[in-house]
């Protein structure tokens, strides 16, 4: 018999430039360990990461506002399986964090060591060193109460 299923893939690779808005954001992360955002005065919305346009009115924006590094936990989940639905050896906690000064959230790891995270709790970004200009320049967010702050 010939094979009943034919294996295949889409053998394509990509190099993604981060764009104008994210370039400013990543340079801020890499060089100064700050989160750069942009504010649309017309809509009253501050977006982090920085954008060159407001998605609500399409106005041109400047990546000029620093937000965080502390913020509020908007939600969290304990991730127990990987992208292939296979159990992770060690579950990982991810959260949505609204940085101080921002109206938007960041998706990242939570670095809680004892006890469950709680919606509304204060968290603070933990940066890696050295940094390369990537979301992975942030190791994750830790509870402010844990003394992860300065």
């Amino acid at each position: 018999m010939s094979p009943t299923k034919i294996p295949g893939e889409l053998s394509v690779s990509f190099r993604y430039t981060p764009g104008v808005g994210n370039t400013a954001f990543f340079e801020g992360l890499r060089d100064r360990a700050v989160f750069l955002g942009s504010r649309c005065e017309d809509c009253g919305v501050t977006s982090v990461p920085a954008r060159i346009f407001c998605e609500r009115c399409l106005a041109e924006l400047e990546p000029s506002l620093e937000c965080g590094p502390e913020g509020e936990l908007v939600s969290w989940t304990l991730v127990r399986v990987d992208v292939d639905d296979q159990p992770l050896e060690r579950p990982v906690t991810y959260g949505l964090v609204r940085l101080d000064g921002a109206d938007t959230v960041l998706l990242h790891r939570l670095l809680h060591t004892g006890g469950e995270p709680a919606i509304g709790e204060r968290v603070r970004a933990v940066f890696t060193s050295p940094r390369e200009g990537s979301m992975l320049d942030v190791e994750g967010f830790a509870p402010v109460a844990d003394g992860a702050g300065p």
Binding site: S2, T4, K5, I6, P7, G8, E9, L10, S11, V12, S13, F14, R15, Y16, T17, P18, N22, T23, F25, F26, E27, R30, G133, S134
Partner: peptide, 21 residues
Amino acid sequence: EFRSATGAVEQRLDTRYEWDP
């Protein structure tokens, strides 16, 4: 400039298929 752009990310499309003929 494209090769050295800050924040650029490289990824491979890693989906796999078993097509039913």
